[in-house]
């Protein structure tokens, strides 16, 4: 800070605003990935659900999406399975 600044109390240095903006982005990102990783049982749950579904419908690993969300005091377990077209099914039985 120059003499002028120290006398009149002005400053062009507003680095705190930059710090805040960077923090908000990185903290939101890291909180997101903490949530995304979910509890320990999530990978196993996903695998077993897929096995059950596969008993009836041939679906691919990539066609099942498990997502856990926390909102207020409760958690939402979202399960998305994309079923294949009719054709491959006719091959069974």
């Amino acid at each position: 800070m120059g003499l002028f600044d120290s006398i009149f109390g002005t400053s062009t240095n507003k680095s705190a605003a930059l710090a805040k903006e960077r923090l908000q982005i990185i903290v939101a990102h890291e909180r997101g990935s903490r949530r995304g990783s979910g509890p320990d049982y999530l990978p196993a749950l996903k695998k077993e659900l897929l096995e059950v579904v596969r008993k009836y419908v041939p679906v691919d690993q990539s066609q099942i999406k498990v997502h856990l969300d926390r909102e207020g005091g409760y958690e939402i377990l979202e399960l998305n399975i994309t079923l294949p077209d009719e054709e491959p099914r006719s091959g069974r039985n």
């Binding site: 109390g9 400053s11 705190a16 605003a17 805040k20 923090l23 908000q24 903290v27």
Partner: peptide, 16 residues
């Protein structure tokens, strides 16, 4: 320093 804008303020940290 917070007043001058070169340190995060109490409000900034609380908000984050």
């Amino acid at each position: 320093r917070a007043d001058r804008g070169d340190m995060l303020s109490v409000e900034d940290v609380l908000e984050i």
